[in-house]
Amino acid sequence: METTVAGLAGEAGDDDLVAAVRVALVAAADPAKAPGMQAYMKSRMPFLGVPKPARERALRPVFTARTLPDPDRWTATVLALWRRAEYREERYAAIDLTGHRAYRTYQRSTTLALYEEMVTTGAWWDYVDEIASRRIGPLLAADPAVVRPEMLAWSRDSDLWRRRTSIICQLSFKAATDLDLLYACIDANLADRDFFIRKAIGWALRQYAWTDPGEVRRFVAARGDALSPLSRREALKNITPQ
Rank of each mutant, 00 (worst) to 15 (best):
T98K: 14
R108L: 05
A85P: 12
R104I: 03
V220P: 07
D126S: 11
R223P: 14
Y208S: 09
D126K: 13
T98M: 15
R148M: 05
V78T: 02
A58V: 12
R198E: 12
D143P: 08
R60G: 12
T98L: 14
A176R: 15
P51Q: 13
T177C: 08
A191G: 04
A54S: 12
D72M: 00
D157F: 05
D15Q: 13
W125M: 10
A226Q: 14
D212K: 03
W74S: 01
G202K: 02
S109C: 01
N238D: 15
I239A: 07
R193W: 00
L182T: 04
L140Q: 05
P138Q: 03
L8W: 07
D70T: 07
T121V: 05
A24Q: 13
W124Q: 01
T165L: 11
L81V: 06
L227K: 03
L230V: 06
E116W: 10
A20N: 13
L181H: 09
T177F: 07
A222F: 09
E150D: 03
V119G: 12
A113Y: 00
P144D: 04
W161K: 02
V119P: 10
A226G: 14
E90R: 05
Q107N: 04
W210E: 14
P149G: 09
R156V: 12
L140C: 02
L182V: 06
R91G: 06
R218T: 12
Y183G: 03
L227E: 10
R73L: 01
G122F: 03
V23S: 15
I201A: 05
Y40T: 05
A145N: 06
T240C: 02
W74A: 00
A6K: 05
I131W: 10
R91V: 01
R162C: 07
R218L: 11
P46D: 09
A34H: 06
R148L: 11
T3E: 15
I168C: 10
A132C: 09
D126Q: 11
S228G: 08
P69E: 11
P149N: 09
R198L: 04
R156M: 08
L79Q: 06
R55C: 07
L48V: 04
V78W: 01
V146L: 02
F47I: 01
L179C: 06
A85D: 10
R84T: 15
